[in-house]
Design a binder for these strands. Structure first.
Length: 416
RNA sequence: GGAGGGGUUGGGGAGCGGUCAAACCCAACAGACUGUAAAUCUGUCGCCUUCGGCUUCGCAGGUUCGAAUCCUGCCCCCUCCA
């Protein structure tokens, strides 16, 4: 776009990652001059990250690809406090065990997506518990606390919002921004990290770190934030009926993950290709221009690319094969969710409604009955037209029965 | 501490003694149309085997033939005053 010189910032700009940035020209100059280290912090509040964090991880990848050093900071220490940004209520305090457990879960996708090691552009994973856990209160207050005025802290959105709504903000949470600021400075000191990336909700926290480093060390640090990613109809991306789109396989099977991307709205295809794949921009522009049924090609590519990135190539291929088999050939792909029913039960016969519930295609029998009544239930691709139907082993085709609820939800039943 | 207002089915939000499983909106789900898209239209949307039953309207009791609706106690939230 404009006269940016560094490859990293050019890419980020072109792919529309940047929402706000501090002193972009100076940062650009520095990144053009030579490799830098940059970090993003991740909360350890769940066992897996979801697609909301994928934007951030993509930035780390680009950082690595363009020769810089990405640091993934695990908030092992700060998660004991809880970030009040954008929240009306305090987080539940978490125990050390839970945090450690979460951290182990969150780690997983990073191994796919970044190359870790000791080389100059190898990624690092650091836990801020390393320095936060052992802080000495009085000396911390004297060294760091003097650089923060309450007056200013009260003006930050994360704080102001709570106060305006007269929601309690504990002193514990009030300290969060100071600790995150301290993190930034500490990473600068330890690893020469000069840039913090993050979501737009982290702007305040990032700026605090920059100011702290300037006051304490007269060091110039930089910050870049990404916009909140929304879908074309204005919703926050990544929420579906069945829940968040998790990055971890044990939270969301690869097939479902793939389907999420495959079902992207037309209007979002370009945006998602830019942010969540590394396809060349020429290709992105070509794909997003496709119209009518043709844009489905772009969606499949999107799904393949993202799934391969996050889950690995094999998972992506399996998911694509299953989708193809299921949707294009009307068959039953191996990657569909599968339930096993005891052979004896199946021999004796099981009611269709119960089977749908067992297969997870309905939350209650009532729901399944409704589904049948409305003509949305299928068994081996034949419409189920009565709730009295009994399913028996005789209906197994190649050892399995395919159940469908509507056009998109399928499951396989096997005898076992 | 004082004075008021409120907690209803995923969310918002009606209902204020029977006709209430509870209006309406959103979300969700299914069907039609399509392209595994969006928009639109139609239907559904507590649980259970039924025009039948069961369990729901912060919690626990009570009044009544009958309560989400009235009374008592408790818990939680909000607004205003101090």
């Amino acid at each position: 776009m404009t006269g940016l010189k560094s490859e990293f910032l050019q890419i980020l700009t072109e792919r529309e990652f940047i929402h706000q940035a501090t002193d972009l020209e100076a940062l650009d100059a520095k990144m053009y001059e030579g490799p830098i280290a940059a970090y993003i912090g991740f909360d350890c509040t769940a066992r897996s990250l979801h697609v909301g964090s994928l934007v951030q991880i993509m930035m780390l990848r680009w950082l690595q690809k363009t020769g810089h050093k990405p640091i993934a900071l695990m908030g092992g220490g700060t998660s004991k406090i809880g970030d009040p940004s954008g929240r009306d209520e305090s987080r539940q305090l978490m125990t050390d065990e839970i945090i450690a457990d979460n951290m182990a879960g969150i780690r997983k996708p990073f191994d796919h997506m970044l190359t870790f090691g000791d080389g100059p552009s190898d990624a690092m994973m650091v836990n801020n518990g390393e320095w936060l856990d052992s802080l000495k209160y009085i000396s911390f207050l004297r060294d760091i606390g003097t650089h923060f005025t309450i007056n200013r802290m009260l003006t930050f959105d994360s704080v102001k919002l709570r106060l305006d709504r007269e929601q309690p903000l504990t002193f514990l949470e009030f300290n969060y921004m100071i600790l995150q600021a301290y993190d930034f400075m500490e990473l600068g000191k330890r690893y020469g990290c000069v840039l913090q990336l993050g979501g737009s909700d982290q702007w305040g926290n990032i700026v605090n770190g920059i100011e702290l480093a300037r006051r304490v060390n007269s060091q110039q640090l930089f910050g870049v934030t990404t916009p909140l990613i929304t879908t074309a109809d204005g919703k926050k991306m990544g929420k579906t009926a069945s829940g968040a789109i998790w990055l971890n396989e044990d939270h969301l099977p690869a097939y479902d993950f793939w389907q999420f991307w495959r079902n992207t709205q037309d209007a979002d295809v370009g945006k998602f290709l830019r942010l969540f794949t590394e396809l060349p921009m020429d290709e992105v522009r070509r794909l997003e221009k496709l119209e009518g049924a043709e844009i489905n090609e772009a969606k499949i590519i999107l799904a393949n690319e993202v799934t391969a990135l996050v889950r690995g190539l094999d998972a992506a291929k399996a998911a694509e094969a299953t989708a193809k088999e299921t949707f294009e050939k009307g068959g039953a792909g191996a990657d569909l969710p599968t339930v096993t029913i005891a052979s004896a039960t199946l021999e004796a016969g099981i009611n269709i409604v119960d089977l749908f519930v067992d297969a997870g295609l309905g939350a209650s029998k009532g729901e399944v009955r409704r589904l049948i009544k409305q003509g949305g239930a299928k068994l081996n691709d034949e419409k189920v037209d009565g709730e009295e139907m009994t399913v028996t082993a005789a209906m197994l085709l190649d050892g399995q029965i395919k159940l469908s609820a509507g056009k998109k939800r399928h499951a396989l039943v096997k005898a076992g």
